[in-house]
C-alpha cells in the first residue's frame, strides 16, 4: 500500500527507516486512512445487490480494499451502494437513510437502474436514477455490473477521496449541510423542493380544462 503515496516529496528519510517512518501532510494521511476503510451500508435493493454479495464473497473479496465491514445501520456507514432499481415507494426511505448517515458519506449508484432508471425507466413507479434525490459520487454502468466493474467503481471512489482536502470538504465548513427533504407519496411521488412547480403545472392544466398530464386515467 503506497508508502510512496503517503510520503510527501521533499523530505529525505534515512534508508534504514524508510519502511517505518513516513513524513506526510495531514490531508494525505487523513484521506489515506479514510479511503482504505470505507464501510458500506448493508443495503440491497434489487438484482444488483446479488452481484454486490458476489463481490463480497471469496472470489472477488472486497475486503482486500478494507471494506468488508458491511454495516446494517446507516449511522455506522460511510458508503451507500445503491444497488438496484429505485422505486417511488422506496425513495423516501433511501433519502431518510442517506440523511442518517454521518459525514463524510459517499454514494455509489450501482447499475443502470440506480444510475438512470435502466430497463425499467419507462415504468410508472420507477425513479429514473437515484441522483434525482441524493448526490452520487460514482456511477457504475451495467445490468448488473460485474463484480470487476463494481471493484473498479470502488477504486474510482478511492481516487476521488484521495483528492479531497480538509480545507474544502463540506463537513468541516462553518454551516452544516441541510438534510435532503423527504419525498412524499401522493397521487404520484412529490418532491417537496418542487411543490411550486407541481402546483403551477397542475393549475395550468386545470385552466385548460382538459385531461391532466399526458393521458391520465379517466377513472376515479
Amino acid at each position: 500500500m503506497g508508502d510512496e503515496n503517503l510520503n510527501s516529496a521533499g523530505y529525505e528519510i534515512p534508508p534504514e527507516m524508510q519502511s517505518q517512518v513516513a513524513i506526510t501532510t495531514l490531508d494525505k494521511i487523513y484521506n489515506w486512512s479514510r479511503k482504505n476503510s470505507l464501510w458500506p451500508m448493508m443495503f440491497g435493493l434489487a438484482c444488483c445487490a446479488i452481484e454486490m454479495i458476489g463481490t463480497a464473497a471469496s472470489r472477488f473479496d472486497f475486503s482486500r480494499f478494507g471494506m468488508e465491514v458491511m454495516r446494517p445501520s446507516p449511522r455506522q456507514a460511510d458508503l451507500m451502494i445503491v444497488s438496484g432499481t429505485v422505486t417511488k415507494k422506496m425513495i423516501p426511505q433511501i433519502v431518510r437513510l442517506y440523511n442518517q448517515m454521518p459525514e463524510p458519506r459517499y454514494v455509489i449508484a450501482m447499475g443502470a437502474c440506480a444510475s438512470g432508471g435502466g430497463p425499467f425507466k419507462e415504468g410508472y413507479t420507477v425513479v429514473a436514477g437515484v441522483d434525482k434525490f441524493i448526490p452520487v459520487d460514482v456511477y457504475i454502468p451495467g445490468c448488473p455490473p460485474t463484480p470487476q466493474a463494481l471493484l473498479h467503481g470502488f477504486i474510482t471512489l478511492m481516487k476521488k477521496i484521495e483528492k479531497q482536502s480538509l480545507r474544502s470538504v463540506p463537513w468541516y465548513q462553518k454551516t452544516p449541510g441541510e438534510p435532503i427533504p423527504i419525498p412524499i407519496l401522493g397521487p404520484d411521488l412529490m418532491d417537496p423542493r418542487k411543490f411550486d412547480q407541481i402546483k403551477q403545472v397542475c393549475g395550468k392544466l386545470a385552466e385548460q380544462g382538459n385531461e391532466p398530464a399526458e393521458g391520465e386515467a379517466a377513472h376515479e
Partner: peptide, 26 residues
C-alpha cells in the same frame, strides 16, 4: 430523453388542479 417531454421533467403526473400542499399523505 423522456424527461424533456414531460411537463414536470420527471417521471411523475398529477391530476389537473392538484395542490400538493393540501395533500395529507397516508
Amino acid at each position: 430523453r423522456a424527461e424533456d417531454k414531460n411537463p414536470f421533467h420527471d417521471n411523475v403526473q398529477f391530476p389537473a388542479g392538484f395542490d400538493p400542499e393540501l395533500w395529507s399523505p397516508e
